[in-house]
Amino acid sequence: MSRFTLVGTALSLVLAIGSSACGRHSETAVVADHLRQLVDRPAVLDEAENRLTARCMNQAGMTYPQVPAPHDDRPMVGLLRAAAPLRAETVREHGYPDRWMTRDRIPEKGPVETHADSLPPDVRERFHHLLGGEGGNDVRVALPGNFEVAASSSGCVGGARRQLYGSVENYLTVYYLPELVQRRASAADEDPDVRLAYAAFARCMAGEGYRTATPAAAVALATTYYPGGRQRAGADEKKLALADAGCQTEARLRERLAAAVDRLARRWLADNEAAVSKAHGLLRAALVEAKTAVNRR
């Protein structure tokens, strides 16, 4: 074999490997986008489930309240959702977000529970029976990592999910797979670089006069300023929140935490691409059904 033939063969091999790597990278990027869509699940799915549930209840002679679709205001950062960063210009005027300062309050009842409580006891019992059925959580699904979830297949809620997703198993897969990877990403706090970032944050806060090792500890400290409950942010809270925002920026805490979360999410994704692709297919099919259900009068 001539030297030119050897060079040509080697070049062809390099190009083939490069093409394969490029194809693999493209395929991984597509699956990553599928995961992002699952995490950022369109609100039309919840809207359609509520409408289908309401129609079922109405057909049984029961009134059903309007239920707004849940809203997750955490922004998408990479593949997952993350808390929005504190901004100095906001906390200087308003302190911490209100919801951070009322986390220990008993959650208010939603529209379904409130409506059920307004019914006479016998009607209320029938309402709950029609809504949830009587089979209990009879459908179980094992997701990656032996993460098991369950739900009922009966009642108006179960019927709505079967119609929308094709089965309650499909609903559980689409709904909980993103939750699974989001939980996996919570281990980012143990990442060595994130630990260094927290240490830098703690030193910065100590320099401002606060012994708070994490942003969560700073918020917890702020809640102690209001023994009788917080109505609006006071001067001490605003001062603390401003120091918190500044120290997070100085330590580059959010950026370093986001990078660690992305590393964990991508490792999980590499091990579970088939599960993500399957769930994304179920999501797309459910979206078609959801648009039909929402547009139907």
Rank of each mutant, 00 (worst) to 15 (best):
V7C: 03
V7F: 09
V14G: 04
L15V: 14
A16H: 05
G23M: 02
R24Q: 14
V30A: 09
V30I: 13
A32D: 14
D33S: 15
Q37N: 09
V44F: 02
L52F: 06
A60N: 02
G61V: 01
T63L: 05
T63D: 06
P65V: 10
P65R: 12
P70W: 03
H71R: 11
D72Q: 05
M76D: 15
L79T: 13
L80A: 01
R81I: 10
A82D: 12
P85T: 00
P85H: 11
R92E: 12
E93Y: 04
D98V: 02
R99A: 12
W100N: 07
T102R: 14
T102Y: 12
I106E: 14
I106N: 11
G110F: 04
G110M: 03
P111V: 05
E113V: 09
T114Q: 15
D117M: 10
S118M: 09
H128L: 10
H128N: 14
H129E: 14
L131E: 05
L131C: 07
D138K: 00
V139Q: 11
R140A: 09
G145D: 07
F147M: 04
E148N: 11
A151P: 00
S153P: 08
V157L: 12
G159P: 01
A160N: 06
A160Y: 08
R161F: 01
L164D: 12
L164T: 13
V168T: 08
T173S: 07
Y176Q: 07
L177V: 11
P178A: 07
E179S: 07
S186P: 02
A187K: 02
A188H: 15
R195L: 11
A197T: 07
A199K: 01
A202S: 11
R203V: 15
A206P: 00
G207Y: 06
G207T: 07
E208M: 02
G209M: 04
A216N: 10
A220D: 14
A220G: 03
L221V: 06
G228C: 07
A233K: 01
L242T: 13
D244L: 00
A245E: 13
C247W: 05
T249W: 11
E250A: 07
L253T: 09
L253V: 07
R263T: 15
R263G: 15
R266S: 07
R267W: 14
R267F: 13
L269M: 02
L269R: 03
L269D: 09
A270P: 00
A286E: 13
L287R: 10
V288H: 08
E289I: 00
A290L: 04
N295L: 08
R296M: 08
R297V: 11
